[in-house]
Write a protein that binds this DNA or RNA. Structure first.
Lengths: 139, 139
DNA sequence: GCATTACTTAGCTCATCGGTTAAATAACCT
DNA sequence: AGGTTATTTAACCGATGAGCTAAGTAATGC
């Protein structure tokens, strides 16, 4: 049974070595040798980690002579972020106070611009019209 | 060796049953029995999953008579989101427009009186004025 | 007290994971 | 061709993880 993509991605992220590799790659594309340097670990171990990251869709790999440069692949990160979005209201104050924010945005927009009803906020579409806050017994 | 919190959290999220449990809890606090219902799985299995989620800081559990109601705990979600933030520029358009944002902040500072053009959205600063897309040479 | 309900703990199995070393592949450079 | 550099594959090992059944704990209610 092939595990679903989100599970593979989270599993890949659950290892500190792999997260460190990703952090290094956030600085820019680089080779396996270069990636291996900081770790007290055999090269095959790193190679395996990279395979896991690639299979999880978190990196992609090119070919340049004898090097296989690695770089961040955005899609899986985005999926994780999307999934997390379902829970954002539990900790993100501005999400919790959506009405206030959206109301304000609406007012502003009405004052100056074409009356769109959605707008991109960190690449997530958000209704600009008022959304009622349901009474939750949390916190 | 105790695994670092972020690793435990990602590991906990790497299981579809546990993510489904969290999705259910996003609808509101509930009992173990209730949580177990949708799954074709023994109760001890669910109990273990809950233990993993609790240890990962993703849920907390109370006591009410013979029930142990579970609810979402925000902190670990927030940590994951924070970690993910280091990579947001790889897929998030408004994060990619960092220069524009920083330029604007600088201008704002120079103008000393705050005609604020940024605002916090999801706890991240985001331009509210129109966004222009610069050609970035990534992917 | 004793049965019922709600859960957890113990002990087992089997698969997967992170690491190892040794050998294989691939592309470059005389 | 033969050597060097970069990286992967193969085969193995010990630890962890997800599932099970059976038994244990805890509070409710007759």
């Amino acid at each position: 049974m092939p595990p679903d993509p989100l599970s593979s991605t989270f599993a890949a992220l659950a290892d500190p070595t792999r997260r460190a590799i990703l952090a290094r790659l956030a600085l820019g594309e680089t080779s396996v040798m270069e990636l291996a340097k900081p770790f007290d670990m055999s090269l095959p171990a790193i190679s395996k980690h990279l395979k896991v990251l690639e299979h999880a869709g978190l990196i992609s790999r090119g070919r340049e002579a004898q090097w296989r440069p690695c770089r961040i692949a955005p899609a899986s990160f985005q999926q994780v972020d999307g999934w997390l979005g379902n829970f954002r209201r539990f900790w993100d104050e501005s999400f919790n106070r959506l009405d206030g924010l959206l109301e304000e945005m609406k007012a502003e927009e009405a004052a100056e611009a074409p009356p769109r009803t959605t707008r991109k906020v960190n690449n997530r579409k958000v209704r600009v019209t008022k959304e009622k806050q349901r009474g939750r017994t949390r916190g």
